[in-house]
Design a protein around this nucleic acid. Structure first.
Lengths: 327, 327
DNA sequence: GGCCGATCCGAATTAATATTCGGGTACGTC
DNA sequence: GACGTACCCGAATATTAATTCGGATCGGCC
């Protein structure tokens, strides 16, 4: 029996695609297909399910462009964005990340295809960004490199997932990967220095961040968020409180910003192994994919401070951001 | 009531996309969506149908690459092709054009996205090629120009359809159009000369063909084919017979080829208003999308003569072409 | 060989989706 | 205002698709 890499019979695969074509492209009923191919209807149904799971059929929902044009134009003008995409989020907070990710994927694809992008900074600790990658389709593309913009956080299981998404992003667009497999936040600057001294690989990755064409940024409130806890290579509640008392309203890739979008420099900066403020500034396309009430302040700060030049968000957040735009 | 260009209520459009997202992306049942949005199930069903017809949901069947790799490699080697794609055609002759067109579209998309293509020659009288365009998705793309490679044939209704497909191709890839709205075949060379003398526009279009990056070629047997008839600005049965007796086994964009792939020069050449043999030779990417027993001889001829360097065909035709490949 | 577990299959059934049909409403026309 | 038309809607229903379930087949393993 001839078997391909993924352990599937070639003939079966052929049958699966044939059925999928007859059903989806040709629009035949399952019963017709069954009859034509001498199969039972349940079998056709199962083959189609199989085609789905193998991603042989893919369906996208393209949002008509006109829908939120006003909000998008408003955001562009109010904050000097190159581009803003506003989607109608379909449900509550938990699923907002999924919706935004799914919506952002095609826009990102367009940007990658047309933007002459070589080096991509990726902040894989953002749940929303992981959903973007999840929804991204393979692109017939140029080489390049996907660079992680922060070391590890959280549990080993989470780290595994994160590495996988970075890899997936790179594979989809035909790029190399540059993993940053060191702790993302350490207890004090000395440890950071020691780590980097010992790890030429990490030093190399961090230097790659000097020259980003496109950065997929994380945006978060100034507090410990859901999947992470104390001891997870992350800032503690106390440390966040310290940043807040220094004026921070949120963080962009773990760099703190005040309400006016100015960088709030704190000792915590020297405990982060990841992209620096200067490196962020230098990135050509700076994407944020985010929404939700807990991110209003930091989103506004990042926009006012021009840390972001491309934004994907939901209608509610968009309206809010417009209402608090600087005049 | 706010109405957008296409005469649809914006709110309705918003609802349509929302329902489409819940159903396709989120995988909810129609009944659940109905409940959540306070609609009836039939309404959800109708909204989804609407989303389909508006092309808000698009689904593709991606053929796994491994399936016909052997045939493809064989074709590449046997005929020195840059690329060959072989699909399992799903049904009989009439529908082969549809299947091939659908299969070719994504490959063409990739070529357009990555190939640095500016000027595209299009042979809109090929039914198969029209199906390619039919199945092509919008590409986030570069400008450029789509140039018709032959004047009009057949009935005004057919001409209308052809113009539409040319336009569609151009719109999808963000290119300009260069229509060749003159007869494709005239009764004698003098008329051709007179026509061109009088029509600077047509002369300009024909000059554009000197510098094609990509040509979508038509391939046909040496006889009058289905939708056309005598008097349709087309060769007559007698003329085809004349070409056959000169050794022609088929035609490539109405230029005759013999069994060895050599150009069969006849007086008929001077009656065609369209791409010339020299211009075809000069095109960088020369695509054929074709299959079926009636095209075996001309396909082989075009391949042997290196008139084609990229081919999309079906498994049966591919096997045949391999079996008759020159050693 | 005999047993076990895994997998695949189709008849029958259940679940999900599309369509019919009759009523309702908005709008243009006389 | 009366009438006609065209459309949109949901209850009921018809159609289509997914699932259950029991039987059959294939290896691996003792």
């Amino acid at each position: 029996m001839t078997v391909v890499e993924d352990g599937l019979d070639v003939d079966r695969l052929r049958l699966v695609t044939k059925v999928a074509r007859l059903y989806h492209a040709r629009g035949l009923r399952q019963a017709e297909i069954a009859q034509r191919l001498r199969l039972s209807q349940p079998r056709v149904s199962r083959l189609l399910a199989h085609a789905d799971s193998l991603q042989i059929v893919r369906s996208t929902v393209a949002v008509p462009v006109e829908l939120n044009r006003e909000l998008e134009q408003g955001l562009r003008q109010a904050y000097g964005l190159q581009n803003a995409h506003v989607v109608d989020a379909v449900a509550g907070a938990e699923e907002l990340a999924v919706d935004l990710g799914r919506a952002a994927a095609p826009f990102l694809a367009i940007a990658l295809a047309t933007g002459d992008v070589r080096t991509i900074g990726f902040m894989p600790w953002s749940r929303t960004l992981r959903h973007v990658v999840e929804s991204l389709r393979p692109l017939p593309l140029i080489a390049g490199c996907v660079v992680e913009m922060l070391g590890d956080l959280g549990s080993p299981a989470l780290q595994q997932d994160v590495a996988h998404q970075t890899q997936r992003l790179a594979t989809l667009i035909g790029a190399d990967t540059a993993f940053l497999r060191v702790p993302g936040v350490v207890a004090n600057p000395a440890i950071r220095a020691a780590l980097l001294r010992a790890d030429p690989h990490a030093r190399r990755i961090l230097r790659l961040l000097d020259d980003l064409d496109l950065a997929l940024l994380s945006v978060g409130p100034c507090e410990v968020v859901a999947p992470l806890r104390a001891g997870d290579n992350y800032f503690t509640d106390d440390q966040f409180a310290q940043a807040r008392s220094a004026g921070a309203v949120g963080q962009l890739c773990l760099r703190f910003l005040d309400a006016d979008g100015a960088w709030v420099r704190t000792p915590l900066d020297d405990m982060v192994v990841g992209v620096t403020v200067d490196q962020l500034r230098r990135a050509r396309y700076r994407w944020a994919v985010a929404g939700g009430a807990d991110k209003y302040p930091v989103l506004r700060a990042a926009l006012v401070g021009r840390w972001i030049n491309r934004l994907v968000t939901d209608t509610v957040t968009a309206s809010h951001l417009l209402s608090v735009a600087p005049s």
